[in-house]
Amino acid sequence: MSNEKSFSMKTLLILAGSYVSFGIGAGFATGSEVLQFWAPHGLPGAVGIIISALLILLCIAVVSRDCRKYKLASMDMMYRHYCGKYLGLAINWFNTLTFFLMVGSMIAGGASSMNQAFGLDTRIGTVIMLIAVMATALLGMKKLTAILGNIAPIILLAVVVICVYSYINPTDSFSTGDMLIREKSGLSMSGSLIFSAVLNFTYVVLNMSAYSANVSTRADHQKELVWGNVLGQFSAALCQIFVFLAFVLNASVVGGTDIPLLILGQRLGGAFYAFYGIIVVLATYTTATGMAWVASSNIQREDSKWYKLVVAVVCIGAFVFSNFGTFGVLMNIVMKAVSYLGVVFSVCVIVSKIYRYVKESKEGVKA
């Protein structure tokens, strides 16, 4: 009698929800990611989101399957599997650097959100963010991240409310918004729609593939893991389109801004604006703390005597980086760094799959 558990739709839905929750952080809550990737392209940006989502769905399905098949239970194991010992190690450490830079951009984002929503001086805001992030990361983030991650459903619900209101009370028509959002796009990832789609794909797939490796043991069946991640990415793409169309319909208000969703939230009244301001600050805080923990624990394990010193160095260094520019500028730098690193990783996945297919085919012929 087999001890294998039966396929569980409940597990699939839980994994899909976890995927979405992991992907929804400060970049989504502020709206900066959506704006910088797609605003320069106007309404066709929605097509770019679909192209990117299809590429991500394909890659995530492949990586999820391989993580389960080859027992790749960590980010480091996954990078080594696809990229080889030395390139995999290099990508792992460069990715650690991007986590560090992300901490800095989130500190800047939290300070900017506090300034925009509550009028707090950004210099004071960065110090508050530094203290909060360092204090939390020093405690160890494994348990606390799971608790703080519950903010994702609140972010989603609040964003839906903002977008629905923005659809009902737009400042611009689709045709006018299409023109304005292109003109006021400000910082962007690329002037080419196709290249933006590719960069968005590589930006997402690098970290979501690492997530797939970390949760590969949570499913009893390969189908649960693969389809859970596919459903999660499909839902994330729909959310992006939903938000982007709200931006187009309100381009005269949000075009070229750092935190467009917070600006749209202001139109719902002072109470909601304050509420969403708190949500955005919490989102940047939880994202920064999680990234600080990942960067620090990749250098020194949490149970190491050097861990706390590493956390302090990472957080203080990130604080220094946060003063190099506005939240939008720093996010643009980090997103480009992650995207181009993701290009290298994606090429490695393709080459690795071709190599293993050819090798297994030859072995099959010999057998």
Rank of each mutant, 00 (worst) to 15 (best):
Ser8Asp: 09
Lys10Val: 08
Leu13Lys: 05
Leu13Asn: 04
Ile14Thr: 09
Ser18Arg: 12
Phe22Val: 08
Ala26Ser: 15
Gly27Trp: 01
Phe28Leu: 15
Phe28Ile: 14
Phe28Arg: 00
Ala29Glu: 07
Thr30Cys: 08
Leu35His: 07
Leu35Trp: 00
Gln36Arg: 13
Ala39Tyr: 01
Leu43Glu: 00
Leu43Cys: 04
Pro44Gly: 11
Val47Ser: 08
Val47Thr: 07
Ile50Pro: 01
Ile50Gln: 05
Ile51His: 08
Ile51Val: 14
Ser52Glu: 05
Leu54Ser: 14
Leu55Asp: 05
Cys59Gln: 09
Ile60Gln: 09
Ser64Ala: 15
Ser64His: 04
Ala73His: 11
Ala73Gly: 14
Arg80Leu: 13
Arg80Met: 13
His81Leu: 10
Gly84Ile: 06
Leu89Trp: 10
Ala90Ser: 14
Trp93Tyr: 15
Phe100Pro: 01
Leu101Trp: 03
Gly104Cys: 12
Ser105His: 02
Met106Val: 06
Ile107Asn: 07
Ala117Tyr: 09
Gly119Glu: 13
Val127Cys: 05
Ile128Trp: 03
Val133Gln: 04
Met134Arg: 04
Thr136Tyr: 02
Thr136Asn: 06
Ala137Arg: 08
Leu138Gln: 09
Met141Val: 07
Lys143Val: 03
Leu144Ser: 08
Thr145Glu: 14
Leu148Tyr: 11
Gly149Asp: 12
Asn150Met: 12
Ile155Ala: 06
Val160Gly: 03
Val161Ser: 00
Cys163Tyr: 00
Tyr165Met: 04
Tyr165Arg: 02
Asn169Glu: 12
Pro170Ala: 12
Pro170Ile: 01
Pro170Phe: 03
Pro170Lys: 09
Ser173Asp: 09
Ser175Leu: 14
Met179Trp: 00
Glu183Asp: 14
Val198Asp: 11
Asn200Cys: 12
Tyr203Leu: 15
Val205Arg: 00
Leu206Gly: 02
Met208Leu: 12
Ser209Trp: 05
Ser209Met: 09
Ala210Thr: 04
Asn214Lys: 15
Val215Leu: 12
Trp227Leu: 13
Trp227Ser: 08
Gly228Pro: 10
Gln233Phe: 09
Phe234His: 06
Ser235Thr: 15
Ala237Leu: 10
Cys239Leu: 15
Gln240Ile: 07
Phe242Asn: 06
Ala251Phe: 01
Ala251Tyr: 02
Ser252Cys: 10
Val253His: 01
Gly255Val: 09
Thr257Ala: 11
Pro260Thr: 12
Leu261Asp: 03
Leu262Ala: 11
Leu262Arg: 07
Gln266Arg: 14
Arg267His: 14
Gly269Arg: 11
Ala274His: 12
Tyr276Lys: 11
Ile278Arg: 04
Ile279Asn: 02
Ala283Trp: 03
Gly290Gln: 10
Met291Asp: 12
Met291Ser: 15
Ala292Trp: 01
Val294Trp: 00
Ser296Asn: 07
Asn298Arg: 13
Ile299Leu: 15
Gln300Asp: 01
Gln300Ser: 10
Gln300Thr: 01
Asp303Val: 00
Tyr307His: 13
Ala312Met: 13
Val314Ala: 02
Ile316Gln: 06
Ala318Tyr: 03
Phe319Gln: 05
Gly325Arg: 10
Thr326Ile: 03
Val329Lys: 14
Ile333Cys: 04
Val334Pro: 05
Val338Tyr: 02
Ser339Met: 08
Tyr340Cys: 10
Leu341Cys: 13
Val343Trp: 00
Val344Phe: 10
Phe345His: 10
Ser346Gly: 09
Val347Pro: 02
Val349Tyr: 01
Ile350Leu: 15
Val358Leu: 07
Lys362Trp: 06
Glu363Cys: 00
Ala367Pro: 00
